[in-house]
Simulated assay, not measured.
Amino acid sequence: MSIGSAKILVALLALLLATACSPLTPVNLLVPDDTYTLMADQPYGENERQKLDVYMPLEGAAEAPVVVFFYGGSWRSGNRADYAFVGEALASRGIITVVADYRVYPEVTYPAFVEDSAAATAWVRRQQDSWQTKRQPMFVMGHSAGAYNAAMLALDERWLSEHGMNAQEIAGWIGLSGPYEFLPIINPDVKPIFHHPDTPETSQPFYHAGPQSPPALLMAATPDKLVDPQRNTGQLTEKLRSAGVDVETHYYESLHHVTIIVVMADPLQWWEPVVDQVHDFVMRHSRASSEPDS
């Protein structure tokens, strides 16, 4: 796509963001569908929302790292099919990419969506035995509320341990515009989800960050008004670095809360190098990671 055409799409996205229409619909229509093999509607649980889609690279899947991606939506909404552009962006670059649904409010409250994220990740880990001769490094990734889910899996060992996994099986994690420390809760939409005013401190990813945490790639949009980039990405970066954890952090002046994930789509990758930085982080830490006995 030319720069001129991409600018038209940007204008369209800006219009859609001001309406009730999802900006992801036109994005996915413009994303290639011949750069990966899709394994759709894979169940990792019995609930209708406990399903995931797997985007396989056309070549080299047996030796490819794996990224499990969780979308945002304030733990109230979201659909894995809307994030086909994320699956395509990474699978076309040689990364097995899994986009998982999880249960949301009002069907569930904290910590059920974290439990679902852990179950999906454990399902993928087991499936690697049929995809690969040797399990390759695994990463968890998310945007907004999904970044919270990914952070909880990476930083709080309780969730994956329920599925027989240990912290060393996560080679790294990636968070885009994630809420990592949001007590006391101000957003009225989030209060019932986290049992306000009785929200446990242990529900906050920031609480669990320490020397045992895996490498992190944290990304945020400086103008973000929904999730404060300094309180969340900035504070977590500082805490992890002070604990000796390898953290790579990027801030983007030209993006906001939604466009930071949308620019991963093929037609918009010229805008900011988000997908390049995710790919580079995964590949670098895949090379550095040694597979534990399992």
Rank of each mutant, 00 (worst) to 15 (best):
S117N: 01
K134P: 02
M219C: 03
P197A: 00
G175Y: 10
Y105I: 04
E238N: 09
A220C: 01
E115W: 14
I3C: 07
L153W: 11
V104H: 00
G142Q: 01
S117P: 10
V278L: 02
G78E: 11
M39D: 06
L38K: 05
W131T: 04
D224L: 05
S213C: 02
P200T: 06
A171M: 02
L217W: 07
K225I: 09
V258H: 14
A100W: 08
G45Y: 14
L15A: 15
L160I: 13
I3T: 07
A119H: 04
S286G: 01
T202G: 00
E291N: 08
Y110N: 05
L176A: 03
P211I: 01
L218Q: 03
L217K: 02
P23V: 13
L255E: 08
M1R: 04
L226T: 08
L268T: 13
A265Q: 04
E59C: 03
G72H: 07
Y44D: 11
T109S: 15
S242Q: 11
W271G: 05
P65R: 11
A265P: 05
V86I: 14
N149S: 11
G234C: 12
T249W: 04
I3W: 11
S117A: 15
S74H: 11
L240M: 13
G94I: 01
P184I: 13
Q235M: 12
A84G: 14
M283I: 01
G94S: 02
P267K: 10
